[in-house]
Structures are given as C-alpha cells and as structure tokens.
Design a protein around this nucleic acid. Structure first.
Lengths: 326, 326
DNA sequence: CTGAAAGCGCTTACAG
DNA sequence: CTGAAAGCGCTTACAG
C-alpha cells in the first residue's frame, strides 16, 4: 500500500496525496476529501522509512541506557521521555548493559540515520570509543561526565554530595565509615569516592575501608557488605554509592545479626523510591532524576536544532535526605 | 557520505560496493580491498533507512512495555533481549505507560516499516484497538492474555498460582485473607482474583476483602493497605498481586504499629528480586520471567519467518516460594 | 566477476 | 492549486 495507490484511487497525483498527508499548503477541499477517503478506505499507513530517507529527519532519539533494571536509570528515562514527548519526539530505548559491543550495535541506529540524536549514560572511560562511533551527530551524556571533547552533559556535583553525606555520618557520631563503591570506570564513582576521602581527611578520621561491588545490584551490595564485615575492624557506618547497593548492605548486616542503625548506619545515594521501601528507610542523596532527564533532552534538542549550539555542562541541585537508617 | 562516493573513491560501481558491504557473492579480492580501503578512509556508514526501504526488513522488533519501572517488566525485557540478540535482532523499547495514545504513536514504527514485529504487554481490554492498529504484522502478547483473535501469547496459569498461594495462607492458619489487586482491565488481574475467590470458596472461608491499587507501585500498595486497615475487621493475611504492591502493604502495616507476619502475613506475586530485598522477605509466586520473555521472542520470530505460522498460547511453569513474611 | 538500470515509497522545488 | 520529475541511498535481477 503506497502513496501511488492512494493517488490512483483518489484520481490525483502523488504530490497531492503527499500534500494532504503533510496537511500542508492549500489543497482544494474537494481533492483533500477524495484523498482522505481513499486513505481510509484502504487503511493506508505511510512508510516512515521512505519519508525519513527523503527528509533526512526522524524526530526520534536514541537513549542508550546502561541498565533499565536500575531504578535511577528508569527515572532518568521517564524525564527524558516526558520532555521528548512534549516536543514531538519519540524515544527509542536500548539497553547497553554497559557493554561497548552492544552500544556499538545500537549506535548503528544513529549512523544509519534512523534517529536524529542520542543520549547516553555510559562510563566516561568509553567516551573515546563512543566519540568515534558517534562522530558529530547530536549527543548528550546524561548523569555521567564527559570532561573532554565536545559533549554536553548533565549531572550533579558528586563530590559535594558525597562530602555532605559523610559529614552527616560523622556528625551523628560515626567513627569508622566504610564505602561501598562500584566500577571506577564511571566518573561519578570516582568523584563520590573522592568526596568520601576528602571529607574523612578534613575531619581527621583515619579509618577507611572501600569495597567495590561487582554490579549495581542488591546482591552485589550484599556481597560487598559481607566482605566488609569479614575485616578485622567492623565499620559503624556504610555509605553505599546507590540505594540498591545500600539495600543489599542492610540485608547483609541484618543477616549477620546486627542492627541498622544501632550497630551500623547505612546511607545510600540517588533518592529512588527504593530508599523508602526498605526498612528502616534509607538516608540518601536525592538526585533530581526527572529533571536531569528533561534537561538532557533539552540540551540534545538544542544540538539537533542547531549543530553549532554550544556544548554545555549542567550541574543540577541535589539534597540530603536523612531517614531512620542513620 | 553515500555508497556512490565510495564507488567513485574505489573506482568501481555501486553494485560492487554493495556486494562488499553485504559480503556476498564473489568480489575479486583486489576490488574488495579497494572498497574496504575507501570505506575506512572516508569513515563511511551505510544508511539503514535506505537499506531497509529497499529490502523491506529491518531485523528490529518493537517492545511496547507498559512500565519499565516495574521490575517484573524489566526482567521480561531482559529475556526478550537475550533471545533477540542471539538471533541477530535488535530491540526497540517503548514505554507505553499503558496509555493507548502512546501505544498508538509507538506502533507507527510498525506500520511505518521501521520494525519487523512487535511484542506487547498491554491490558487485554485494549486488544481490539491494538489489533486494528497492528493489522497482520507479526505480534506477540507477553505476560498478559489474548483470548480472542489471532494473537500468540505467553504467560502462566494465574488462577492456579493464586489458588496455591491462598491455599498456603489458609494452611498456615490464616482466616481473613485480603486481596490487593490492580486494574481489572488486565486479564491477569481478573484471573488472580478468580483464583483467590475460588480457593476461599472451596475452603468455606466467607471473609473476603478486595482493594484495588491505583498503580502497580509501592505507594499505591501502601495506600491500598491503609484502606484495608481502616475497615472494621482487620485481615490476618494479605495477598498482593505484585511484589511491589506487597512491599507497600508491608510498609503500611509496619506504620500502623503491626508486625509481619505475626499480626498480618503478606504475600506477593512475580518473584522479583524486590521480594528478597524487603524485610521480612516476601512469600511470592515465582514467574519464570526471563523464560517468558525468551519464549515471546521465539514465537514472534516464528511469525516473522513465516506469516502463516500458527498462533500459540503458551503457559509456563511457576512456583510458590515461601519466606518469612507468611 | 562486474556494471547499468530499475525501483523501494516518499517529498519537494519547479513549471504551469 | 496541481502534476511531472528528480532524488534520498540503497539492493538486486539482468546482461555481459
């Protein structure tokens, strides 16, 4: 079913059909109706491929998400979606699993002209490769940094946020604060660790312990906490770099027969709903995830509308939420 | 950058370039090299739109997910993805939010020939409309029923699973078992409710209470539980139709100063990781979510490979997991 | 083994 | 207001 058939059915030229389809110009009412009727009668659906090939734009953007299972990512996506929808764009989600091979495959949608731009959340260590793959098509990095190259990004000040969280733990009397971190190829992981260390140093606290969870998951958090509990001195507080990890840590603590927060205080990061779901509810850093997502799309749109739009690095606000876990 | 330019650069025809690109036939080694070199030199990327338009296939499928935030959905998607990847397909995720308007918009990817098939998880009440939108392109309904029309689907036997869960509650001595359900436009919600009622009846338990959560979320579950707690007689057990709702219910119970499971037992459904994350951990029905996803893709692939493939309704295995919450 | 040519289904100046 | 025609970037019989 093509525009040709419709044209034949309606007794007009394909140009006229196309004009009706794009409700453009001035088509004589009589003709418009004939076309509309033919369309309805044949249940015609325009071929988007052909249209996009011709116009060289798709009004679709690719969102390369590292892990949809991660509630923080899911929130970011919702923000991106909201903004995109409002601006008449459609979003294609691809789950990269932080795997460069899969990213590469997904990015063919970009180089293949199926989407007009891309929002990524990949580790900043993969940026060189991504940069090469993406070339100079519109691109925004979301909730992870890009400190070189011509890439716009949105995030929060992770060092400050971490410091404030650690400060809170210190001020509530904790002496041995451990960190459960994740893959340091993420810049945000590095920065949160920096914040943690800076704050300890400035408070003259010598005790320090860092474990690296193998994934950003509950079970990895649990395992990381078990490791911490096996060490000679036991921490009296744990700062986990995400709420999911913190939930895992709490579970490990409970299984070891210890209490939260009496024996060990636990704090998370992100401010997802999960932090309220566990008990005791988690102290955490609330990130404005929806807004980060929205902003990421806005930056992308600027680039799509104008290839020479300036590259921006946006820092959003965050805040500490104190709950019963600390 | 087009195939034409490469042809010119390499001093061959576009046909030859195309052949190299599709590593087909037998291109003289000398020419292949010239082409490969030209491609590398110019960093050429094939235009997928043009290719898909020409070949009328994309090796991409659309997954219309009702809510990526839902951990059960996320698991399904991972299963679909695994299978798709293995078969050389790419997946496009669209978040319908159970909104028919958004589904409609996403389905243009189908009618517009951008994808070869679609997997949905929409409420069965929307099927008539979806059927009309989708026409006769390959389509599989995942984790929700389709009892009419020519739609393949994969799921579990919800009635049996519910009955077994309720049986477990009864057998552990519970007398007043409440149900926290969700939107009855989902067939699975209807069936689980049926199972609940059937089992109560067969056990001659008269007491019954059903609340409907406004969403499949923690806070909606909490609210639903609060409603239940306000009624004259208090239940001594609650069966929530999803783990997320169950988590909300537990939170409400705790806030009311009651204990789980001593005062009220709580059971969930789905068997997501969340069920292990809360404390006490949840008794739940484990659905083989990954396998459901994989199966959904396989069914879709059958339809894509052969338009006359038979329509199937697949029922997967499930099992009851008893934990400390009951 | 290779190239000229048709065609996938659209849109858009251009001429009338 | 409308139509004929070119062209987006590919692939694929067809002929050689």
């Amino acid at each position: 079913m093509s525009i040709q058939k419709i044209a034949r059915l309606a007794g007009v030229s394909v140009a006229t059909v196309s004009r009706v389809l794009n409700n453009s110009d001035t088509v004589k009412e009589k003709n418009r109706e004939k076309v509309l009727q033919a369309i309805k009668a044949s249940n015609y659906q325009p071929n988007l491929l052909a249209r996009q090939l011709r116009t060289a734009r798709s009004s679709m953007v690719l969102v390369l998400v590292s892990d949809i299972t991660n509630p923080f990512c899911a929130e970011l996506v919702k923000g991106i979606e909201e903004q995109a929808e409002q601006q008449g764009y459609r979003i294609l989600l691809c789950n990269s699993g932080s795997d460069i091979r899969r990213s590469r495959s997904s990015l063919q949608l970009l180089s293949g002209k199926i989407v007009d731009g891309v929002i990524t959340m990949d580790a900043f260590t993969t940026l060189p490769e991504l940069t090469q793959l993406i070339g100079d098509t519109p691109w925004v990095q979301c909730a992870e940094y890009a400190d070189a190259g011509d890439i716009s990004c949105v995030g929060i000040n992770d060092v400050d946020a971490s410091r404030q969280l650690v400060r809170h733990l210190v001020e509530s009397g904790r002496q041995r604060i451990a960190l459960i971190n994740h893959d340091l190829s993420y810049k945000y992981a590095q920065l949160r660790q920096q914040g943690y260390q800076q704050e300890l140093r400035s408070r003259q606290l010598e005790w320090q312990a860092i474990t690296y969870a193998s994934a950003l998951s509950f079970s990895a958090g649990k395992q990381a906490m078990e490791t911490l509990l096996q060490q000679e001195t036991r921490p009296d507080a744990v700062f986990a770099i995400s709420d999911t990890l913190a939930a895992g840590a709490m579970s490990a603590i409970r299984q070891a027969g210890l209490r939260v927060p009496q024996d060990i205080a636990v704090a998370g990061f992100d401010g997802t709903e999960l932090a309220e779901m566990v008990s005791p509810p988690l102290t955490t850093i609330a990130q404005p995830s929806r807004d980060i997502g929205r902003k990421a799309f806005s930056l992308l749109q600027q680039k799509m509308d104008n290839p020479h739009a300036p590259t921006e690095r946006v820092m959003m606000d965050w805040r500490l939420i104190v709950r019963a876990s600390t």
